[in-house]
């Protein structure tokens, strides 16, 4: 794996940009460009690539922690962890192997195991970052428990680089399960939803569940005997496709490539909203479907890939108090709007 520390150059670039009164557009590999839709043609931002800032800084499997530079490709990280029989708990989409660690943290997208194994921010233990003043700062650490100071590390998750350029991230990792099995049951959407909810109340070794196309998929993980016992309780037949969950997380299923506006609902749907054409994950707490966003105000439904600013602040469904607090936080980290300003401006009226 390439091992290169360009933090001094990155810090210098931020300082220069700030002095020159221009902003920077932070980029990893560019795999999630579609998520943020920054309109690079119309902005004056300089490109700041973190992709060259790569390598593992510290990794001791017995500590269950890995610290790596932000440009480190997720694929390489996953391979390294696999050699010690470990994995990233949040199963980030790899976006065809292009994604970087920094990008995964900044966008905060978690895969199908999220309700059981935790979200992206759940796994973050510490960061080294550069704020908009060009200061290199360290928050959190490489230990499991740390409550010294505000949790600035976890605040970076899902902030899309608007509060700082991530340099190094320490992540809690988990052991790979000894065995794993995916089962499928032929059920419609409503039946699947109630099944998922019933399972969530029971001690079963479930690590993912998903309804798609009149089929309920469930993944069981753990000791082989435990998986087999779990399977006899859930029922269903063994799913042939070993990469099914990867395809789901990477949006490689045909469902995600249909024309139209792909909507993502991040709160449990009312029964009457679910229909057989949607995809349900996370025991029903995440729903994908096609439709018109404007019809779903107040239901936690957003257009997927509509851009961070739109999602977080200026969409009519957004909460104005949260919007104001977010702008003040942006101001606290980046008063001169140097970092990814297209995504969120500190001093703009709502």
């Amino acid at each position: 794996m390439a091992d290169r520390d360009i933090s001094d150059e990155l810090q210098e670039s931020i300082a220069q940009a700030r002095d020159a009164g221009v902003s920077v557009a932070i980029a990893g590999s560019g795999s999630k460009e579609f998520l943020v839709h920054s309109d690079t043609e119309t902005t004056q931002s300089r490109l700041l690539s973190v992709a060259e800032h790569t390598g593992v800084v510290a990794y001791r499997p017995a500590e269950l922690v890995i610290t790596a530079r932000a440009g480190t490709p997720l694929r390489e990280l996953a391979a390294l962890l696999a050699r010690a029989n470990q994995m990233l708990p949040f199963e980030p989409p790899l976006f065809r192997g292009m994604g970087t660690l920094g990008g995964a943290i900044a966008s905060g997208l978690a895969g199908s195991g999220r309700p059981w194994r935790g979200s992206v921010r759940d796994a973050v233990l510490g960061v080294v970052m550069i704020n908009g003043l060009g200061q290199k700062l360290t928050f959190g650490g490489q230990v499991m428990k740390n409550v010294a100071g505000y949790d600035v590390s976890r605040l970076q998750v899902g902030a899309f680089g608007t509060l700082g350029v991530l340099l190094e991230i320490s992540i809690r990792v988990i052991p790979k399960p000894a065995s794993e099995m995916t089962l499928k049951l032929e059920l419609d959407c409503l039946e699947s939803l109630s099944k998922m909810r019933e399972w969530a109340r029971k001690p079963l070794p479930i690590t993912a569940s998903c309804y798609h196309d009149n089929m309920l998929y469930v993944r069981l993980s753990g000791a082989e005997t435990a998986v087999l016992a779990g399977a006899s309780e859930t029922g269903g037949e063994i799913a042939g496709d070993l990469n099914w969950w990867d395809k789901l997380n990477d949006h490689d299923l045909p469902f995600f490539k249909e024309p139209g506006s792909l909507l993502r609902q991040m709160s449990p749907p009312a029964q009457e909203l679910v229909n057989d054409a949607c995809v349900l994950e996370w025991s029903g707490a995440k729903r994908w479907f096609y439709g018109d966003e404007s019809e779903y105000h107040g239901t936690g439904t957003k257009l997927f890939g509509a851009g961070f600013a739109q999602v977080a602040v200026s969409s009519p469904a957004a909460d104005p108090v949260r919007g104001d607090v977010q702008r003040r936080i942006k101001q606290a980290f980046d008063p001169d709007n140097v970092l990814n300003p297209e995504l969120l401006r500190a001093n703009e009226a709502a």
Binding site: P115, Y150, D151, R154, L155, G158, M266, K302, A318, Q326
Partner: peptide, 28 residues
């Protein structure tokens, strides 16, 4: 909040868009 504003963060659902103010409140 001390400003008189009221922050609603998350709830029944599992994930929020925008800054993770919920995690920030924990340990504050």
């Amino acid at each position: 909040m001390m400003t008189g504003e009221v922050l609603h963060l998350g709830g029944r659902g599992q994930e929020l868009d925008g800054y993770d103010l919920l995690a920030l409140m924990c340990g504050s």
